[in-house]
Design a protein around this nucleic acid. Structure first.
Lengths: 104, 104
DNA sequence: ACGTCATTTCGATGATTGGCTAATTGTCGA
DNA sequence: TCGACAATTAGCCAATCATCGAAATGACGT
């Protein structure tokens, strides 16, 4: 749980997850959305992997990252339930794939 | 949003919030639940205040801290909604006031 | 076998974090 | 006014973090 929240505490990593919500992506494709070096992105991926929030699969030259929604959901739910909240499937559409900005 | 998640990334601070869910408490009363020095707790309180997750009110000698549920809810909801989730009032009881342990 | 491309690892750096003790501030009762 | 108590501030330290450039790894295609 701590690893998940630690992972979520960084805006870049939160946006990575948001990107991956749309579809699995390669490391390079994700990195293209950010203004940091490849090694830095790689480190962020490692944190997300460590928290088990993403799965990675090597496909030839590239590495495909995929979000593990259930892990994210469990962590969020686990925390929310401490405060008397439940997590419900939203009525709204799965959310637009728009290139939205992360709230700093 | 980042300040909230940053605040939530520490287990001690999460447990402080959990304690405050029961009722407002003085700094000392909260600190008594943890095995760290008062100044360290004071620093944690400062982070929670910075994130606007708690309100503090000086009452004579002591300082009373109170959780700001709406702020926590907004942050959680704001994030959850990115993934197509909603936050619902839990059917389960407001959660027992038991001295539970925080999941590391 | 070679060059290229995608990604990660290595090594370094400055900033932030969580922790402490000691000192300070503010409030109350005697 | 003094002493005791609650809490914060000040100053310090070790560990972690986000970042980088350079080097290493691994997988093509030629």
């Amino acid at each position: 749980m701590s690893t998940v929240f630690k992972a979520l505490s960084d805006p870049t990593r939160r946006k990575v997850l948001e990107l991956l919500r749309q579809r699995p992506m390669s490391a390079g494709e994700i990195a293209a959305h950010f203004d940091v070096s490849k090694p830095t992105m790689s480190a962020h991926f490692a944190v997300l992997r460590e928290a088990d929030l993403v799965a990675s699969e090597k496909q030839g030259k590239t590495v495909i990252y995929q979000i593990k929604m259930s892990v994210l959901e469990d962590a969020l739910l686990g925390f929310a339930s401490m405060f008397g909240w439940e997590l419900k499937e939203g009525a709204s559409p799965p959310a637009p794939p728009a290139d939205k900005e992360v709230t700093e």
